[in-house]
Design a protein around this nucleic acid. Sequence first.
DNA 1: CTTGCTCCTCTAGCCGCTAGAGGAAGTACG
DNA 2: CGTACTTCCTCTAGCGGCTAGAGGAGCAAG
Lengths: 141, 141
Amino acid sequence: MMGHGVSIGEASKASGIKVPTIRYYEQIGLMPETARTEGNRRLYDEADLQRLRFIRHSRELGFEVEAIRQLLELSDHPSRSCADADAIARTHLADIDHKIARLTALREEVVRMTDCPRDTVAHCRVIEVLGDHGECLHERH
Amino acid sequence: MMGHGVSIGEASKASGIKVPTIRYYEQIGLMPETARTEGNRRLYDEADLQRLRFIRHSRELGFEVEAIRQLLELSDHPSRSCADADAIARTHLADIDHKIARLTALREEVVRMTDCPRDTVAHCRVIEVLGDHGECLHERH
DNA sequence: CTTGCTCCTCTAGCCGCTAGAGGAAGTACG
DNA sequence: CGTACTTCCTCTAGCGGCTAGAGGAGCAAG
């Protein structure tokens, strides 16, 4: 075991991000290139682990990689205004609201078609509704 | 203009599916290989257009291609029991509910972090919360 | 006959990973 | 010290559901 730094496997356990995903994050520049051992193995220090946890949490909350990139950039410069970070979060919130609204509308339509009088496909509401948009509540899905 | 059948461009307009997407659906076997003109252009008849509309509507309602494949197979056999179609729709409904629940939970977290006292990044709730999972309402996102 | 549109096929790219091949390095045990 | 086992390395390809572009052919209008 090296003095300062843990292996990618331990970093994976500590962050909850899978090993190949950590390497992928390095590849796309979300994680920096870390130190290496003599045998060419990656070494993660406490700052790296903190960054990994930040990324994981952001992904869990649905932030896109590009947004996380910006958030990380901001968090690397603590004296900057917080407005940018806030704006990113608000944009994401609007996005979530949009998705919820859409899914809720879809849900309505799908519920409506599932109360089907058990019979043959010829009289099946599911099939019928899918084939004829005119049956729908909303013009635009 | 050929007697029976319209071009892929017209099929696109009639169904609301883009031309390359229609070709893609043929490629993955969701649409059959249609008739062709002497000049090798695809010709779509009324049944093809109906099928395209069915696919589009299903996609709009969020059904996956694999589910649509099964639904189309069912709709090609009207004398079968409707139970299978119903099961597919119900599975999809459960899936939608799952997504809505997850998004609603995420929304909470993101809302909680966006009421940030406008200051520097050093004291920004957004950055802080992302860096520390302990701040969260829910253990598992 | 030429212009301009649509169409054809084929390949590659998007996102955010995930899986696998083929090999080197490190660790545990006899 | 050897050998087995695990972890690590790089590299490439695949997932779903399209979308974009290259390079060429067909076809209708002026």
